[in-house]
Design a binder for these strands. Structure first.
Lengths: 370, 370
DNA sequence: ATGAAAGCGCTAACAA
DNA sequence: TTGTTAGCGCTTTCAT
C-alpha cells in the first residue's frame, strides 16, 4: 500500500509497481510517443494504487515551463483590481495554470525586484497590472528573454500587448454628460498621470471641453495620489476656494470615497450643491444617498481577456520569433443614477436629479483594436 | 558579456568565469560551508557580470523546498479577505516567500483539487482561508505529509493551528449593545453556520440574550449564503413579516449591502425604524447615511499573524515531529456610529442616534490564547 | 513499443 | 578550503 518508506511516491515507484520502465511510465502519463494501451492501464492502475501525483517542480525542471503565471499589481486591496484578478485566476485555473501574486505597493524599485523574483521562479508569463513604470525597454528586455508579458491597463510601447480600458472615451462621456447639464467648473480627480489611465482620462476630459470650445480649469485637474486621504483633503481645498467646482469626476474607488467624505464634511449636498460622477459599480456607489452615477467597465471581462491573451502566448511555441503584439480595448459604460443634477443658476429650487437610464447589462463587449 | 550562447547563465557559467568549481560557486552564494573571501568576491563579480540569478526551480528540486506558500480562499473579491491576503503577501514577501493564490469558489470538490494542485507544486506551506470543509482529517493528512497548514478563521480540530477572529465575543458585544438599547427582535445575518465564524457568532448572539434571561427568535437567525442578493431578499422577507425586526446585525460586507438595500427598498429609515450593526470598516459603512455602527477587527494584523505563524513553522526544521499547534485569537472592536438607536415605544419622536465613542485607533491588539 | 541513459541547474556529501 | 560527483524527479533522445 505504502510507497517505499516515506515521502511521496515517484514515477520510479509507479514504473516498478507497473512492471515497466520509467520512460514508459512517463509516456503513459503524457500520452506522448508510442505507448501500448496495456502499458497505459497498468501504469494508471499503479499510480492510483500508490497515490502518485507527478511532481510539478521536477516537470518544470525538465520542460522548462512551470505552469505558473506571475501577476504584479500595485495593491490588490483595490476592489476593482481584486475582481479583475479574481477573473484572471479563474481563467488561468481552467487551463491548469497557477497564479503567483505580488504587490508592488507602487514602489518601482520593488517592482523591478519582484519581476526578477518571478523570473527566477521561472514563471511562464508575466501580467503587469497597475505598475508604476511603463518603460517599453522593460518589456523589450523581458520579451527578448522569451518571457510573455501582458499589460493590464498599462502602455508599454509598440511591442507590448495587453488589455486596456478605454478611459479616454469614458472620461469624454462622463465630462460631456456634466457639460450638458450645464456644469463647467468640473473637477477631475484621478490616479496619477504617470500611467496610462490618468493620461487618457485627462485627454478625454479636456477634449469634451474642447468640443464646446471650452477649456477646463487646469487647477481643477487633480491627478496625483489615489488615496482616500489625499482625495479628502484635495476635495476640501477645492471646495473652500472662493469659487468652488459644481461637479466632481472621481475616477478611483478610494478617491470617490474621499471626495464624498469631503463633501459631507463641507456640509454640501449631492446633487443639489455639487454633482458627482464616480467609478465602479461598488456597494458604495449603489447605496450612497444619492446613488452615485458611475463610469464603469466589465471587470470580469477585463480579467478574462487578460488571462486569455496570456494563455494564447503561452500556447504558442515560443520558438516563433515573438508573437504579434495584441491589444484589446474594453469599453466603458455610464450607469446613470442620482448624483448629478443640472447646474442651478444660483440656488433655485432643489433641482431634481437626472436619471436617464437603468443600469445596463453587466456584460460589456470589448472591441479589439489595431 | 553574454553567456554561452542563449538562455540564462547557469551557475556553471559563473563558476567557469570566476575560475572556480561549481561547488565553490554554490557555497559562495549560500555562504554555507567553508569558502574563502577571495572566492566569494570572485564569484559575485562573475555573477554580476553575467547577470546570473540562481534558478529557483532547480534550487527547489534539490532542496525540496520551493519558497512558495499556497493560499486558498473562497473568493478574494471580498474586501475583507483582500486586505488580509494583502497583509499575508507583504509579510511573506519580506521573508522571500512567494504567494500562490487560488479561489475555491466555495466548491469543496474544487477545494480538494486545489490543495492537491498546490501539493504537486511543492508549496512549502498551505494557508487555508475561508474554505468550506473543516475536516480535521484533512489537516491530519496534510500534516502527516509534513506540509505545514495554517487556518484562517477556520477550525480544523486539535491539531490545526491558525489565526481566528473572536467572533463569539464580537457577536456577544454587538448583541448586548442592541439589547441595551431595548431591542429584542434582532435579526442576525451571517455567513453559513457550517464554518467557524457562523457558529461562533450564533453562539455569541444567543448568549447575549441568555444573559438577560431571554431567547432570540430562531426565525431571525439567518445563517446561510453570504451573497448580497440573498441578504436582500431575506431582509425583504423579514421586514414584510407581520411583526418585523427592529434591528439587524449584518456580519458580512455583502450581507450588509444587501440588507441596506432591502431597507431602502422597504422605505424604512435607519436608525429610526430599524437599527443596523454592520461589519468591517469599509467605505460603505463610513459613508452611508447614517454611518454604520460596525463590528471590526484588524485585518492587517490577522494577515500578518497568519503569515508569521506559517513562517514559524517553515523555519522549524521539519524533522521535528510536527510542531505544537498554535492558535492565535484576534479580538474585535465595535465602532460606534449612527446606525443604532433606542427602541422607540411605538413611533415617538425620531429617536436620536446613539453615538457612544469615537472610532478607536485602527490598530487592534490580538491576544494569544492557549 | 519499450528500456536505458542523459541530463535540466542546483546543492551536499565526500575526497583531496 | 576546494573540486568532483551523485543525485532531486522527471522527460526525452537513442537504441533496441
Amino acid at each position: 500500500m505504502k510507497p517505499a518508506r516515506k515521502g511521496k511516491p515517484t514515477i520510479r515507484d509507479v514504473a516498478l509497481a507497473a512492471g515497466v520502465s520509467v520512460g514508459t511510465a512517463s509516456r503513459a502519463f503524457n500520452r506522448a510517443g508510442r505507448v501500448s494501451e496495456a502499458a497505459i492501464t497498468a501504469v494508471q492502475a499503479a499510480a492510483e494504487r500508490l497515490g502518485y501525483a507527478p511532481d510539478a517542480i521536477a516537470q518544470s525542471m525538465r520542460t522548462r515551463s512551470s505552469g505558473v503565471v506571475g501577476l504584479l499589481v500595485s495593491d490588490f486591496t483595490n476592489p476593482l483590481y481584486a475582481r479583475i484578478i479574481n477573473a484572471v485566476e479563474a481563467r488561468l485555473q481552467r487551463d491548469g495554470f497557477a497564479l503567483l501574486l505580488a504587490n508592488t505597493h507602487n514602489d518601482s524599485r520593488h517592482e523591478l525586484a519582484m519581476i526578477d523574483f518571478f523570473r527566477r521562479r521561472r514563471v511562464d508569463g508575466l501580467i503587469l497590472g497597475a505598475c508604476e513604470t511603463e518603460k517599453p525597454e522593460l518589456i523589450d528586455a523581458l520579451l527578448a528573454q522569451d518571457l510573455p508579458v501582458v499589460a493590464l491597463d498599462r502602455d508599454f510601447g509598440p511591442l507590448g500587448s495587453g488589455v486596456n480600458v478605454d478611459h479616454y472615451h469614458g472620461a469624454l462621456q462622463a465630462t460631456r454628460y456634466l457639460l450638458k447639464l450645464g456644469h463647467t467648473r468640473i473637477a477631475l480627480m484621478t490616479p496619477g498621470q504617470a500611467v496610462r489611465p490618468g493620461r487618457e482620462r485627462i485627454a478625454g476630459f479636456c477634449d469634451a471641453f474642447a468640443e464646446r470650445g471650452l477649456k477646463p480649469e487646469p487647477k481643477l485637474i487633480r491627478a496625483e495620489r489615489s488615496s482616500m486621504e489625499f482625495a479628502f483633503s484635495e476635495a476640501l481645498a477645492l471646495l473652500s476656494a472662493p469659487v468652488r467646482p459644481t461637479a466632481f469626476v472621481c475616477l478611483g474607488t478610494r478617491i470617490l470615497a474621499g471626495v464624498l467624505q469631503g463633501l459631507r464634511h463641507s456640509g454640501l449636498s449631492v446633487p443639489d450643491d455639487v454633482s458627482v460622477v464616480g467609478v465602479g459599480d461598488t456597494d458604495l456607489s449603489q447605496l450612497f444617498s444619492p446613488a452615485i452615477t458611475s463610469l464603469t467597465w466589465d471587470l470580469e471581462a477585463v480579467g478574462t481577456a487578460t488571462a486569455e491573451l496570456m494563455l494564447a502566448r503561452l500556447s504558442t511555441a515560443s520558438g516563433h520569433e515573438s508573437v504579434e503584439p495584441e491589444r484589446i480595448v474594453m469599453t466603458t459604460q455610464m450607469i446613470l443614477r442620482d448624483s448629478c443634477g443640472p447646474l442651478s443658476g444660483t440656488s433655485t429650487a432643489p433641482s431634481e436629479p437626472v436619471r436617464a437610464a437603468v443600469k445596463p447589462s453587466t456584460r460589456a463587449k470589448g472591441g479589439v483594436a489595431k
